[in-house]
Each structure stands twice: as structure tokens, then as C-alpha cells.
């Protein structure tokens, strides 16, 4: 039996909103040691999503037997919208479940809402995701990255990211004209989450699909900062850290064969 109780529904609500536009169907893997993990590739097979919610993400967590819960994320999202962000949220499944029980409780305990979501059999490869060497790692405010990704998409389908030791430059070249935004590395000791940190082994110049970057920044409400790891001719990693877990996106850059 699985029983995972979140102190607030907001984490799960934000996580599902962050991935449901990239992936329609996915398996939730549940185990006592790892908590809940998800690995899914978007339909165009260019973006890989990896979610980890450790048992420490939950107020209470038990999972007697490893479970795979196949879910339609649009349906899950409909149910999660029924609860308030500050409600307790509990996910419950039997050992051989055909449905997932989702329970919201008002913090004053005077309202309990229960929903049952039908599960599906979803065929998906489980991929090995190793830690990768990277040419550079950038940590910046998640909102600043989201603004650049959204603004630049209006100019071009592609966004070029150029990193040097003291700045990150985003460049868009479209039919109406061009644009660029430079963010300089800075350390803000008063407010560390406002810092822009660049750890550079090698300068980087990579181009990504603006559509995918806009899918990735849907995770912005989950974390104050995003860490981006870039390597020439390798998938980039965008990481949003959660309390006791993470949501990572791996995006293949665009390049000529």
C-alpha cells in the first residue's frame, strides 16, 4: 500500500502543471526508499523530464511494495485543481491498484474531499540518467530565466545561449529582427537567490528550441532559482530543486549534423 501525505497540496499541483504540457501520460514510480519518481520523454522525443520526490518531501510516507502508477496528467491536473494549495494532500493506492485515491483536507479539518483517478497501463522505457560532465553551470533566479525564455520566444523559434566566465547572453534571431539579453554574473550576499553564478570550465555556445524552453519555465513556481548545466553537443540540464527532491529537464540542443 502507498500512502503519501504532503503538508501542502501546492508542491504536487505545481509539479503537475510544470510537466503536463510536455508529457500527456506517465508512470509514477513509488518505493519506500526513493519516494515518488517520474521519468518521461515528451512526444517529440527531444525533452526528458526527471522528477524525484524523496520520502522527506512528504509529511508521512509509506510504500510497502514498489508500485507503478500510470497516469493521464491532464486528468490528474483536473483533480488537483479541486484542492486548495494549502490543503493537506494524500495519495493512496492499494498494492495492485486500478485507481489512485487523492484526498484533500482543509487545515482546519472541516472539509475533506476525495477523488479516485483511474490508472492506465503505460508502456515506457526506463532510461539510465548518469551524472554528466558539463562545460558550464549557471544558477540564476528562476523568474529571470522565465522572462528571457518567454520574451525571446516572441522573436524566434530558437534561442541561442552563450556563456563566458562573467556573463550569460541569450540571443534570438527572427524574421522581424534580432534581440539579445545579457545577464552578468553577480553575487548578492543579502539575497543569495538573486545571485547569478557561473561556473565555467569552457565557454559555451548552444541553441535550443524556444518552445521547449517555454515548457521548462512552467516549473518556475517550484523554486527560487534554476541551475542550467550546458555541454557542447550534449543535452542540457535544467534543474529546479525541491525540498527533498528535484524536477530536472534534459533538452537536446539544436545543431547541424
Amino acid at each position: 500500500m502507498l500512502e503519501g501525505k504532503f503538508e501542502t497540496a501546492s508542491t504536487m499541483k505545481k509539479v503537475i502543471e510544470a510537466i503536463k504540457d510536455s508529457v500527456k501520460l506517465c508512470n509514477l514510480n513509488c518505493s519506500q526508499n526513493d519516494g515518488i519518481t517520474v521519468q518521461a520523454i515528451d512526444d517529440s522525443r527531444v525533452l526528458l523530464i526527471a522528477l524525484k520526490l524523496d520520502p522527506s518531501c512528504f509529511q508521512e510516507f509509506r510504500c510497502d511494495k514498489d508500485l507503478v502508477l500510470g497516469l493521464d496528467l491532464e486528468s490528474l491536473s483536473k483533480i488537483l485543481r479541486q484542492g486548495n494549495p494549502e490543503d493537506y494532500l494524500t495519495l493512496i493506492a492499494e498494492d495492485s491498484p486500478d485507481s489512485l485515491l487523492i484526498v484533500f483536507e482543509d487545515s482546519k479539518k472541516d472539509r475533506i474531499s476525495e477523488f479516485s483517478l483511474k490508472l492506465m497501463d503505460i508502456d515506457s522505457d526506463v532510461l539510465t540518467i548518469d551524472e554528466m560532465e558539463h562545460d558550464c553551470a549557471i544558477t540564476l533566479p528562476a523568474a529571470a530565466f522565465a522572462k528571457v525564455a518567454r520574451d525571446m520566444k516572441t522573436l524566434s523559434e530558437s534561442l541561442q545561449i552563450l556563456v563566458t566566465k562573467d556573463s550569460v547572453k541569450f540571443k534570438a534571431d527572427g524574421s522581424i529582427g534580432t534581440g539579445s539579453v545579457i545577464l552578468r554574473a553577480r553575487t548578492n550576499l543579502d539575497d543569495t537567490k538573486e545571485s547569478i553564478l557561473i561556473d565555467l570550465n569552457k565557454p559555451v555556445n548552444l541553441t535550443f528550441g524556444a518552445k521547449y524552453l517555454n515548457d521548462i519555465v512552467k516549473a518556475t513556481p517550484l523554486a527560487d532559482t534554476v541551475t542550467i548545466k550546458l555541454t557542447d553537443k550534449a543535452p542540457a540540464m535544467f534543474e529546479y530543486k525541491l525540498q527533498g527532491g528535484f524536477l530536472r529537464y534534459y533538452l537536446a540542443p539544436k545543431f547541424e549534423d
Partner: peptide, 14 residues
């Protein structure tokens, strides 16, 4: 596409 090949080359099925 090149992008799809890149992703599947990096992340092999377990």
C-alpha cells in the same frame, strides 16, 4: 532529427 538522436544516444534504456 539530430536532436532526437542526441537524446536517445545519451540516455539508454535500462
Amino acid at each position: 532529427t539530430v536532436q532526437q538522436r542526441l537524446l536517445t544516444n545519451f540516455f539508454k534504456p535500462r
